[in-house]
Design a protein around this nucleic acid. Structure first.
Lengths: 189, 189
DNA sequence: GATTCCGATGGGACTTGGTCCCATCACCGT
DNA sequence: ACGGTGATGGGACCAAGTCCCATCGGAATC
């Protein structure tokens, strides 16, 4: 059969997005996803912890984010370090080639409460990673937490803007603009 | 049997916390929770949408929060309106009598990834409600979003501080202090 | 070229969360 | 005594997720 074809995880993710678009998340079965990818339920759960996780690439971003923030120039403010970190993540994960898939993925997530819940958890992980990176720079705890929270907000805004447009801005440029907008708004509270 | 005893939902919640403390969330079955409360699985799911929800009181807070923020004095800044809203929520939901249960609940949630995920979703709901309330005051979208995000952060900090201490500060006082701390930290980003 | 080893896959049994439908019970008013 | 109403019990059923073992393909080895 289709055994031993490469990129099983990616094939499963694509099949999942297609099926979620067609029938919705809840009306789609793991077995159906696996079948469309030429695989079985067993193999699905070998690649993903659960049904939701097929749309979330694990937590590979967290480590990169921590390192990039910790490694930002010593003179950088917390916000600048966060921007550097998100930029680094963008270079690794949000390339021009993945833009269209990102938009479809976002629409599918928005349509399912269960997937939004998982996305909220990923947001917490992202915030925790940024807080961690900032703390390693010697930033006081509460300041780090707030900077990370604003960074996560900017990231969400940037991801939305970036995946929904077709101009040539790369993710780094978009996220820096979003972070700047967020900081201006925070001064107006 | 135990049919027709009052407060079925509360009995289920108490039984759930006890069992989660004893065996952990994952090693506890819905049937076990229902049995300890003198009820059955059917009744459990009649009171709660799913197993996680037994520790989260629905979304009663959201409506109250929106109204309280929208109804804050016209001269209030976004942050002040958020403080008023959270204060109102505290008066309704976080009384001295519920403090000890809140601390136990918090510990149980912290120990379970699945419960933390649900808590993250509740945080989103909280943020959305605050954003909604602020928007009704005519606050610009992005400013409202940022103020709500900082408010949610302050709420989390306040809930932690409030449920872990035994002094006589009510939730309103704690949350106003937390919000003030958060705003100071945001100026240092 | 046959053998051996290994990682990825298939498949089925099993538990639990969650849904659905209907029977049953207690209380309340008439 | 009677029937109505709302909450409960109970069982069938489906899908998510776990577990274990058989199986297959490819690559290294002889």
């Amino acid at each position: 059969m289709a055994r031993w074809q490469p990129n099983a995880a990616q094939r499963l993710a694509i099949a999942a997005v297609e099926l979620f678009e067609e029938r919705g998340y809840e009306r789609t079965t793991v077995i159906e996803i696996a079948t469309r990818a030429g695989l079985t339920k067993s193999t699905f759960f070998r690649h993903f912890q659960d049904k939701r996780e097929v749309l979330f690439g694990g937590d590979a971003m967290s480590g990169l984010l921590v390192e990039a923030i910790a490694a930002a120039p010593a003179a950088a403010t917390p916000s600048e370090a966060v921007a550097d970190g998100l930029d680094a993540v963008g270079r690794k994960a949000f390339t021009a080639a993945s833009r269209e898939f990102s938009a479809r993925r976002r629409a599918v997530i928005a349509a399912s409460p269960e997937l939004r819940e998982r996305e909220a958890l990923k947001g917490l992980r992202l915030t925790a990673a940024m807080t961690d990176g900032l703390t390693r720079r010697g930033v006081p705890d509460l300041t780090a937490t707030v900077a990370a929270e604003l960074g996560a907000l900017a990231f969400g805004i940037a991801y939305e803007r970036w995946s929904d447009t077709t101009n040539d801005d790369d993710f780094g440029a978009v996220v820096r603009r979003a972070l700047s907008d967020v900081r201006k708004a925070s001064a107006a509270c």
